[in-house]
């Protein structure tokens, strides 16, 4: 079972709530995925629209854990302020910390991330930092008080899967006891399965489900891929080798030159 900041979770799939064709399709996708954590955000609310109220009611009806993000923040100060507002509105200490350092790639700013993580952890937040797969950054974030890390697979919304499998594997090997979640860039169930086979504890998916022709079915597919990948990891993958090895015993085979 997965444990994140003391909360036990059966599902290793976390789902974003943005970009669905309709609120109903979002609800269906969350239910079919089996996800027990969904990410949410805060945005400026126009007077009298109450759209935020309707969305929050829909999320509460799903009876899942809510992980607010600080999406769109480009400085530690903005991220800290957004986190404090999210804590008040969503009544949770959990925060998915995003401090974006480059607008084109939406690459996290490692310096702002560490600065904000320190401030937030000291203020009682339980921080899920969206980060690159950098080992030194991971170490600094852990020192700052993070007890979960969320390295990207690929830039947000690209659907390219795991761009740096070696880097992600090294992170896993370096920090065997830290819950690691691949966040961003996953485009297909096979990418999610791959992350789980590497020994990652969970994956966070949004666009790949929301933009699927059938979001609920894709959510189901991701749920199954995450389970399969995790089971494969726990079962122990065979070592890779460069030369062929016959799986059928050669000795005694019909007409075999080997006897």
């Amino acid at each position: 079972m997965l444990e994140l900041y003391g909360r036990q979770l059966e599902s290793r799939l976390m789902l974003g709530t943005a970009q669905y064709p309709s609120p109903d399709l979002l609800s269906q996708a969350v239910r079919r995925s089996g996800a027990q954590i969904v990410t949410v955000s805060l945005r400026r609310e126009s007077a009298g629209t109450k759209s935020g109220h309707a969305f929050w009611t829909l999320i509460q009806d799903l009876n899942v854990n809510v992980l607010p993000n600080t999406a769109g923040c480009q400085t530690a100060r903005d991220a800290v302020n957004t986190a404090k507002m999210a804590r008040e509105v969503f009544s949770t200490n959990w925060i998915k910390l995003e401090v974006i350092g480059d607008e084109a790639s939406l690459q996290p700013d490692p310096f702002g991330l560490v600065e904000a993580a320190k401030t937030l952890a000291a203020d009682g937040f339980e921080v899920f930092p969206y980060m690159t797969e950098d080992l030194v950054l991971a170490d600094r974030l852990l020192q700052a008080g993070c007890r979960v890390l969320m390295p990207w697979g690929a830039p947000i919304g690209t659907g390219r899967g795991l761009n740096n499998v070696l880097g992600l594997s090294m992170l896993r090997t370096h920090f065997p006891e830290v819950p690691l979640v691949v966040d961003a860039g996953i485009g297909a169930p096979s990418h999610a399965a791959k992350a789980m086979e590497l020994g990652y504890d969970a994956v966070l998916i949004n666009t790949a489900v929301a933009k699927a022709a059938n979001p609920a079915a894709m959510a189901d597919a991701f749920g199954k891929a995450v389970e399969a990948g995790r089971l494969g990891f726990e079962a122990g993958l065979m070592p890779k080798q460069d030369t062929a090895q016959p799986s059928t015993p050669v000795f005694g085979a019909p007409f075999s030159p080997f006897g």
Partner: peptide, 10 residues
């Protein structure tokens, strides 16, 4: 002044 409300997020 800024006023924020819950919104979809990834």
């Amino acid at each position: 002044v800024e006023i924020f409300a819950p919104m979809q997020g990834g």
